[in-house]
Nucleic acid binder design. Structure first.
Lengths: 219, 219, 219, 219
DNA sequence: TATGAATGAGCGTTCATTCAT
DNA sequence: TATGAATGAACGCTCATTCAT
């Protein structure tokens, strides 16, 4: 249940300055996250959410005009965070590249940041992954944000390490895709596809990082 | 529309020997695949399927007791195929390992087989990925099949190439996970997450195979 | 209950040629008319209609997409009929005027036609009067039909009898308004405002016709 | 907006002596009148009224126990006024008849009084007309008041002018009905049915009075 | 085999009303 | 006095499923 504590924090960060969430509203969000991630958005009824949250069904609609608005309000702050620290909008490009001395340092930083975050917010991440392709409201801002703020910076880092001769001379787009696929794929495998298996997640992450560096470095 | 042609083949293979599917039933399957993959199982109504298929709503329930049965009947043959040729139940272990002379040959074969298959049946694959975690009926036989018939053989192959010194000395489970993650992650990326981008999918697949071999081989 | 028999006829005239109304649908219309006219459209619940009609609530929505569509389907054929026989669209203007030899004949015909009709369909007339100002779907075609097909012909009749010196030399618009107001007002009074009083409706109608002719004729 | 000014006056007269209406309460009444007359009582939500009035929803129920009580409090003072000055309860019969020297004077006075009043309070009149048949609370006192205080006096006036030979020898009930129907029908036509048409309402009223006198007077 | 009208449970949402503040 | 969060019954409507034809 401690993960829900942290989800409250996540969502409350969105309402910066004042945390203006009533207790009932937090109960609703908590219940919605739990059931959405278990059964999927479309298969979850507002009646079910209300019961689990211990509120009247009408109370949900006092806070969110529609069920979909509830979904968006849960998932949106997560999306911002996922594209978060490394690619902050106001971050200067030129400085950025210099931040990491080696490609390994970059990958290690990227992966472990995402690892901690996803581990904490695994239920919301599952909702995001499941629902993003069905709801334009979720997909469009995410895609735009990536294109406008993340893509160029990410590409520059790759070019930087290619110039330094640290990584293979593939198309940056392909390398970017392989990095994201490998890290995200691993996290999804560990937390969503095979959550019951008793993985030593930390050591799996380490292996994945090694694999990634090995796979992209010039021999 | 040619992909639906091939889907009919896929499903008809399940009803081996006699292909006892009426034209109406094929229309239903076709329509269901299209809408399920677009909107998700729970958000698709049988009325919608019936309309798109050009049949009466009752006709669906003449062929499938429930809506879920329709889903299972669409997705199940695909699952069998996905775990398919390489790991067929009646395939002798000892022979199997000998089939591939190098690790690269194994990976290349595994990846390109899955690539062709998924490309053909992308809509059903999407349904499978989206729905598998919500329906025990889909997940359990898949997991059992993997554990009972695929896991050991796959592990043996890995051990075989580790003994030969071709690949790194990691835990076979981890290596298996990295292989599956990388191949599936790539295919999902290319076909589902970024289907609009104009990837040269063949060359992306080649890069992925190179990356995988590079990442797992001893330097 | 015989009035509902005639309402079925009214509504079925709309679906000319084949009377394709199932028994259940007629029950729904019957129940809706009764409750709409008693409590008003907005205060009537579909659940209530279903119960009175002896059908499931879903059945209503199989025949009518929305509650409002049910209202429109009930009221629309009445509107056509109300502007009906005297002012049929395909009726030639020049012939029309000649139909009536005296103003009294015209008024008497107009009034008694409307009288019989409204008496038969009083419940639907009440619904029409109550709801027309709240629903554009009802008002607009009614107003257009009047302007395009009735107004000119009606005016010509008035001008005709003014030329003949039978009626006063007021503005035709005003005379038209007085005629409609007096006839409709009387019918509304007798059937809707004071339905419980034991009027001899036939003799009241006669008095009204006399009053109307008296009021408009030159002394 | 000036009409609402006058409505406040109207309603405040009901609370005679002390005008104990807070500003918020007046805002509520104002908003309720506007929306009730636009959409009808049943189709208006208290939430909507509260928003338009700029008060909290709870505030409405601090002043009125139910939504219906709000309706009654708006419409009731109007009803009293409508049966107003001519037929005041404490008015002596015998004096009354003498008040008017001619039938025309009576009609002219009756009509123009109602004309000014309805013009001022058209929105509330519309609510009254629309809702009176659905709510006993509105209908019953109105009917009783008419029967007990207005009917006899009105009848006496008619008999008085019949004896004088000024008007036709019809049943007084019928004549009363024709007078009320013609005046009310005209006012309803001008203000409610065809409010957009640019009538010269004053001259229409004059024509109506002439028509009424003409129609009822002996030739 | 196929239909499509009928069902009634359940859906997301709105409602008038209550009550702690 | 006024608020507005909370309520839960009721709303219009959709759903998967049934069944007589």
């Amino acid at each position: 249940m401690t993960q829900y504590e942290s989800l409250k924090e996540l969502i409350m960060l969105d309402a910066n300055e004042e945390a203006k969430f009533s207790e009932k509203q937090l109960k609703i969000i908590e219940a919605a996250i739990e059931i959405f991630s278990e059964k999927g958005f479309a298969a979850t009824s507002t009646n079910e959410i209300a019961k689990k949250a211990g509120v009247a069904e009408g109370t949900i609609f006092r806070h969110y005009k529609t069920k979909k608005e509830l979904l968006v309000s849960i998932v949106s702050p997560l999306m911002a965070k996922l594209l978060g620290p490394h690619f902050a909008k106001d971050f200067a490009n030129e400085v950025f590249e210099l931040k990491y001395e080696t490609f390994e340092e970059f990958i290690r930083n990227l992966a472990s940041n995402r690892y901690e975050f996803i581990k904490k917010h695994i239920a919301v991440v599952k909702i995001l992954i499941q629902e993003i392709s069905y709801h334009k409201e979720l997909k469009e801002p995410y895609v735009r944000l990536f294109k406008e703020h993340v893509y160029e910076k990410f590409k520059n880092i790759i070019l930087h390490f290619q110039k330094k001769g640290e990584i293979v001379d593939e198309s940056p787009d392909t390398i970017m895709r392989l990095i994201i696929t490998t890290i995200m794929g691993t996290l999804v495998s560990l937390f969503l596809v095979l959550p019951d298996n008793e993985w030593d997640t930390e050591s799996e992450l380490e292996s994945t990082i090694q694999f990634l560096i090995n796979g992209l470095s010039v021999k």
